[in-house]
Design a binder for these strands. Structure first.
Lengths: 208, 208
DNA sequence: CAGCCGACTGACTGGTCAGTCAATCACCGC
DNA sequence: GCGGTGATTGACTGACCAGTCAGTCGGCTG
């Protein structure tokens, strides 16, 4: 950018303001929930005029939209990449998927909270629009399971989509538990959870 | 109107109107979601004047409240009853819990949809109030798991609350799948699901 | 310098509802 | 038939807020 050292934050090169608004939205949505936040809350939090939000986004919905799409596409890409790597056993694939999701939460808890609470688990209101993308994730995970069945590693009497939903549901429930402080959330807990979910799903709770 | 011999339904003995309103709310909340339904929608659906809703309920929230509390207390009671019955192995206990929830959905899909979508999975907005009751369910299930561990039937390296959340999360995710038509929903599917969740949680996905 | 353009501002409007309330109705006991 | 009580009605109001828009600012181009 500019070699000359200038008095910074007015200079925010245009697109930065957009980012500022998105970040503010993450923060405010996480704190108050989507429905309860006014557009002015976002603007205030971003330190920006009310109208500017509408300069960059067509509506309040579009802001949430962008947050979701941005992150969800990363998840889909991650799952697909894991799926394509056939050098590891299916169990490790699930481990990586669980790891990715939990790690996402650890790094950006507010963003993940917003995505889960306002989109993924709000399929009746806002999330409705994104049902196809959400379904896509379930199907990708199901593909991993199916491949495990073909390899003779996973039992075949459980439908892949069913296993996939249960697996993802278990993980999301854990995140919810952390979000709403229903279960303890330390770095150690996150780490333990990663292996525990997979162990439970793959090996089962019962002693063989 | 005719003085006598009239077409009954005016006669609805007072408290029936209350029930009528609740049933209408179930229907409308399920169809449009809580936020998107106006109080007038409930009144219309119930075939009752707008103001009557406020005669029976202090606010729109209270209507949803009542729906949730009514049903959730049944769930809590069912779980506790299962837990107390020590004549059956822990695995059967989980089967009964899963069975109860899935059967509830089969019998009253709209009500369960409302409870899950608007309360249980909406902990950021409306559900916040009910976090204690929701947590209570998790803890009751965790108690079943803990007892299974004491009996040497369940492995002890997975925290009971953790297993509980995963178990419940898996079931709720299945219901969501049915609600949003992400997975097939026939009587056979419900029946299969009941055993599948428990099998997966107890025996695991992997072939031993 | 003039004139343009995109970033940026915030007062204002239009529509939407939750909740209120004054009035009416149906019934019952006296 | 009279007065009281609770059920029932629906027009109305006050608050709230998403989205608009007329206008300012600052930098760049010719």
């Amino acid at each position: 950018m500019s070699p000359d050292a200038e008095p910074v934050n007015l200079k925010a090169p245009a697109a930065d303001k957009r980012r500022q608004i998105l970040d503010a939205a993450i923060c405010v949505f996480a704190r108050q929930g989507f429905h309860a936040t006014r557009v002015s809350d976002i603007a205030d939090e971003a330190g920006v005029a009310y109208g500017l939000v509408y300069h960059y986004f067509k509506s309040k919905d579009r802001v949430l939209n962008e947050l979701f799409t941005e992150r969800w596409s990363l998840l889909l890409a991650a799952i697909d990449e894991v799926d394509r790597d056939n050098s590891i056993p299916p169990r490790s694939k699930l481990e990586r998927v669980a790891g990715f999701i939990i790690e996402s939460y650890r790094r950006e808890p507010d963003l993940m909270k917003v995505i889960i609470v306002e989109v993924t688990r709000a399929a009746n209101s806002f999330g409705r629009t994104h049902l196809p993308e959400i379904r896509h994730a379930y199907e990708s995970i199901a593909r991993i399971v199916a491949k495990g069945q073909e390899d003779g590693v996973f039992r075949t009497d459980i439908a892949p989509i069913f296993a996939s939903m249960s697996f993802y549901g278990a993980i999301e429930q854990l995140l919810s538990g952390w979000i709403f402080e229903l279960i303890p959330a330390s770095d150690a807990d996150y780490e333990r959870a990663k292996t525990m979910v997979v162990e439970m799903i793959c090996d089962g709770l019962e002693i063989a």
